[in-house]
């Protein structure tokens, strides 16, 4: 009998990858935002790769679901040289989701501090931009910018995988110059 894993691998070899065919382009909006927040001085050589540390500062977990989706074979973030890492010490980018709950404010601040410079903070999702539908609560500090400096935003609730990809591509482009 042919083991199922062999069948599956063979099928994928024959049928080709799941990767979405449509080209993703860097987000114009994000590029403009970055031109303002970074200026020309921030350009460094990272060898066209970005390491991202995600930090959920109070999200409803919807944003996380779409981050998982960009890591799946269909959107396959890694083909662009962008990957998620486990430690802020290895990261160039902090991707912050959710409104910042007061209970997470300290952890967010410390995670950003633990990330070596140069580093960029991206606020992903309407909540991380300004608190979204959770703003005004006694338990919420506001968007990520209420606690740490933010370089770029990716709007949406949650942003779609294409939104996330094109935002991150814009960042890659901007910091590479």
């Amino acid at each position: 009998m042919i083991p199922p894993i062999a069948k599956m691998l063979a099928r994928h070899l024959i049928k080709g990858p799941h990767t979405a065919k449509d080209a993703v382009t860097p987000s114009e909006r994000a590029l403009r935002e970055l031109a303002e927040s970074l200026g020309i001085t921030a350009q460094v050589k990272l060898g066209r790769s970005l390491a991202i540390r995600e930090i959920d500062a109070g999200s409803c977990n919807g944003c996380e679901l779409e981050i998982h989706a960009v890591n799946h074979p269909v959107y396959d973030l890694e083909r662009f040289g962008i990957k998620f890492v486990a430690s802020p010490r290895h990261a160039d980018v902090l991707l912050v989701t959710g409104p910042v709950s007061w209970n997470m404010a300290e952890a967010l601040r410390r995670t950003v501090e633990a990330t070596p410079e140069p580093r960029w903070v991206v606020a992903m999702g309407d909540c991380a931009i300004d608190g979204g539908c959770f703003k005004g609560s006694y338990a919420v500090a506001g968007g990520a910018a209420a606690i740490v400096p933010v370089d770029m935003t990716i709007p949406g609730c949650p942003p779609t995988p294409v939104d996330i990809l094109s935002g991150l591509l814009a960042l890659l482009e901007a910091v590479e110059g």
Binding site: D56, G58, S137, Y138
Partner: peptide
């Protein structure tokens, strides 16, 4: 737990 408490009932 409680880190992502957003005060939803209050909101």
């Amino acid at each position: 737990l409680g880190y992502v408490h957003k005060g939803i009932a209050g909101l």
